[in-house]
Design a protein around this nucleic acid. Structure first.
Lengths: 181, 181
DNA sequence: AATGACATGTAAGAGGTTACATGATTGT
DNA sequence: ACAATCATGTAACCTCTTACATGTCATT
């Protein structure tokens, strides 16, 4: 492991507030769900490495009979690393939509199968949109008291638009396929 | 290597017409650019494997002084494999937008750096949109003569909407950041 | 009594990228 | 003269996912 997006994502999250690995996972799955993902298989090893390098520190809350809670905080050195990364141009977007691959080869399948794929795509996007909307509301409220929600809120706006666009496409596409032939 | 999306993407492309590995790469980079990507490092090994398994066959055009052109065609067995895959539910979408990760931590960077990221994001999406629009036109023309463009055209429609939504977001986000503080 | 949230972690392997090697032909 | 396109391919590497292991506490 050398330099992955995971490293900076975690560093950035910890720059907002100290957290456990478990919390980081939840945070990504809720607030960042539209544009990034991560798994424990990356989180725990990355935390260990960041700590070893002095970019974060941990405080252990001892628990009996269950895993100790390890709360990580970013250090000055970590902040520097994060800032340096922020100055570098972003990697190009990477998008993988298997649904579209199946739709592209749609003439090889019965119409109703393709429609099913489109419907499932719509369902996934609708549920993401719902979650995004509730996070947006929550953030807007928080923003009144705390400025730190300004940038995260911006990211939520794009997620919202992308999910909406996907849902609209699904409706049109479904109709077009139904009428086809 | 066992079962990757690459395998089925290649199989699907070859189900439309016989092609070389080089052509497959171009096809993906143009018509499928909004929702999938692939590299030669995947294409050539996958072609070899698909051939070994009898899902595709090749015809070699012998060239002197440069690599022989290997034109691959799908077999009956390959069509069967493709059709079986089409019946299975699609994997959930995977999206990675590093720009948004940087924006999310925007308070750690000067405003103009974040604006720069947003502008570059817009440029990438604008150039993708342009390409998508010209492919759309081309496909619409072809569709008059050949039905096989129907499904690919559907996929282009989503790409178009997603790029447009991204561009619009960039404009709004840029303004909001400019006004911020 | 069952489910879900809390909380840590690892090993193996799938999936994908990058850099390298090679070089003729075609277009500007 | 230079750049882009045509055309193949591999080895090393990196990133990330999945399945497994473990068990408590709070809620319904």
């Amino acid at each position: 492991m050398k330099e992955s997006i995971a490293e900076y994502g975690i560093l950035g999250i910890l720059s907002k507030e100290p957290m456990t690995g478990y919390d980081i996972n939840k945070r990504v799955k809720t607030r960042m769900d539209s544009f990034w993902d991560i798994s424990y298989g990356q989180i725990y090893p990355t935390l260990r490495m960041l700590e070893k390098e002095g970019h974060i520190t941990k405080k252990v809350e001892i628990n009996e009979n269950r895993p100790n809670r390890k709360v990580y905080s970013i250090t000055e050195k970590g902040i520097k690393k994060l800032k340096k990364w922020l100055l570098k141009p972003a990697e190009p977007e990477s998008v993988k939509i298997e649904t579209l691959l199946k739709v592209a080869f749609g003439e090889q399948a019965p119409k109703n199968v393709i429609i099913k794929h489109i419907e499932e795509f719509k369902i996934r996007n609708s549920s993401k949109l719902e979650k995004t909307l509730s996070i947006e509301e929550e953030m807007k409220e928080q923003l009144q008291k705390n400025e730190k929600y300004f940038f995260p809120l911006l990211t939520v706006l794009l997620g919202k638009s992308l999910h909406k666009a996907s849902i609209e496409w699904a409706d049109t596409a479904k109709e077009l396929v139904s009428e086809h032939k």
